[in-house]
Design a binder for these strands. Structure first.
Length: 432
RNA sequence: GGGUCGGUGCCCGAGCGGUCAAAGGGAGCAGACUGUAAAUCUGCCGGUUACGCCUACGUAGGUUCGAACCCUACCCGGCCCA
């Protein structure tokens, strides 16, 4: 599967073929990474308590480099998160509480760690938090060590800043303006203490990366490099990574294994080539076969299946994948009643679920109240509209009447009721 | 601190005394078509005890029979000046 060990393998070629290289600061980077001499770092923003599929691309890039023999550093931005990166943002962000931030960092560290190999002797991996060196950096020293070497003129030229200055009704605070200096200081610190010589990131990080390179060149007379990867956009040009219930996260508490699998399974045909290249570790041949299949027999969705399986397994392990696949098959089977209860119960272990009081069913509950209580809809009018429009299914049977009541008789053998909104938004409701 | 422009529903954006739950667009939701795809078409898109009522147009007051629209103060943002 992971065709990394072949002696003639060159990561740079692989990355380029995958379309993962957008900008490169110096051509030397290519040799550096091909020879396994890079010590590469990528920073991750802890503004949420879980990484999402967008971050995953970057994290996998780090993994790709490590598999090719380079050392890597995953950095959680415990300090920079306190300030907020203006890159790619059209609005000033709100500051996060310190304790929220700390708990986010703790959770993200765990996720980051899962994708790197800490055992390797030659290709080392480090997991760091920049709060460890930035928190106690005195402002005076910072201004002298870092600020002195970067002119405001340069900073103003950066896209992330310029966009905000040109913007009609949102400004840019000094705090966010300073962000790139903090990131530059990180790079310098990592260069000093870990021999870090390469910073990577998504293309919106280019300005920050370059600032770090500048700083190190001026203050350390040392050459370090930068590489960015393109921002992944959907075929229609909008942001990638949104599903029915918001973002797609790596944390199963936020995005269940089933939902995660489904997200990739539903990928549009048009995006398959790019998604396979960005996310998977399939070889060139394997990838090409999948792309061909997708073009010739799109209705089979072979590529989607391969992508979804591969990603789910990578993030949630083989158990997680099994749960996701079982739940998917059970939920999308034509006749739910034909599946025996035991199998159903197992299969639906990974399905989205909620709980409702059994007593409610004993007294019989109105369908509208029932689905509201279950959390399938957020108001009674939404519930009624859903039914009127023919979008509500109970145990895979369409409900036409909003006066319908739900009773114990509606419980499947597994002691739960299966609700469905629209074509594919399922919710299993346990009666307890 | 002064001047000036602005703050409208999830977002963008009209409205500028009644006919405004508020045009239009986007997003979202549902339906049809299909392959759990895309595109397209249709309907919905504040809540509710549902042709009524409640909540909403930065916040608090005021004028008026009646305000998102007028007045006052305050808060927040942009720009310019100091």
């Amino acid at each position: 599967m992971i065709a990394m060990s072949a002696s003639n393998f060159r990561v740079s070629e692989d990355l380029r073929w995958r379309g993962l290289i957008y900008q490169v600061s110096h051509d030397q980077v290519i040799d550096l990474i091909d020879n396994g001499e890079a010590v590469a770092y990528i920073g991750f923003d802890p503004s949420g308590d879980s990484l999402h599929v967008g971050n995953l691309i970057q994290l996998l890039n780090l993994r790709r480099l490590q598999l090719a023999g380079n050392s890597v550093i995953a950095l959680a931005g415990g300090a920079t998160g306190m300030v907020g990166d203006p890159s790619g943002r059209s609005q000033e962000r709100n500051l996060l509480d310190q304790d929220v931030l700390e708990s986010n960092v703790a959770k993200i560290r765990v996720q980051l760690g899962k994708f790197l190999d800490f055992e390797s002797k030659s290709a080392k991996a480090h997991l760091l938090n920049n709060a460890d060196w930035l928190s106690n950096y005195s402002i005076l020293n910072f201004l002298r060590d870092v600020g002195k070497h970067i002119t405001v003129n340069q900073m103003m030229m950066k896209d992330s800043v310029r966009v905000r200055l040109d913007e009609r009704d949102s400004g840019l605070s000094f705090t966010e303006f300073s962000y790139m200096l903090l990131q530059a200081a990180d790079f310098a610190h990592l260069s000093d203490t870990y021999g870090c010589n390469l910073q990577m990131g998504a293309s919106d990080q280019w300005g920050n990366v370059v600032t770090g390179i500048e700083l190190i060149r001026k203050t350390r007379q040392r050459s370090v490099y930068g590489v960015t990867s393109p921002l992944l956009l959907k075929a229609d040009g909008t942001k990638f990574g949104k599903s029915v219930n918001g973002g797609v996260y790596l944390d199963p508490e936020r995005t269940s294994e089933y939902e995660f699998y489904q997200f990739f399974l539903r990928s549009p045909d048009q995006e398959m080539s790019q998604l396979l290249k960005f996310f998977t570790f399939f070889s060139r041949d394997e990838t090409q076969d999948l792309i061909d299949s997708s073009i010739q027999r799109p209705e089979e969705r072979e590529a989607q299946r391969a992508l979804a399986s591969s990603m789910t397994e990578l993030v949630h392990g083989s158990d997680g994948l099994a749960m996701a696949v079982n739940a998917s098959e059970a939920l999308f089977s034509d006749d739910l009643y034909s599946v025996d209860d035991r199998a159903l119960s197992m299969a639906l272990a990974g399905a989205p679920r909620s709980v409702i009081a059994r007593d409610l069913l004993i007294q019989t509950a109105n369908i509208v109240e029932f689905i509201l209580g279950a959390g399938l809809v957020t108001s009674k009018s939404e519930a009624r509209k859903l039914i009127q429009q023919g979008g509500l299914y109970l145990n895979n049977r369409r409900i036409e009447d909003d006066q319908r009541v739900v009773t114990l008789d509606d419980l499947l053998g597994i002691g739960a009721v299966l609700l469905r909104k629209g074509k594919r938004d399922y919710l299993l409701v346990d009666a307890k």
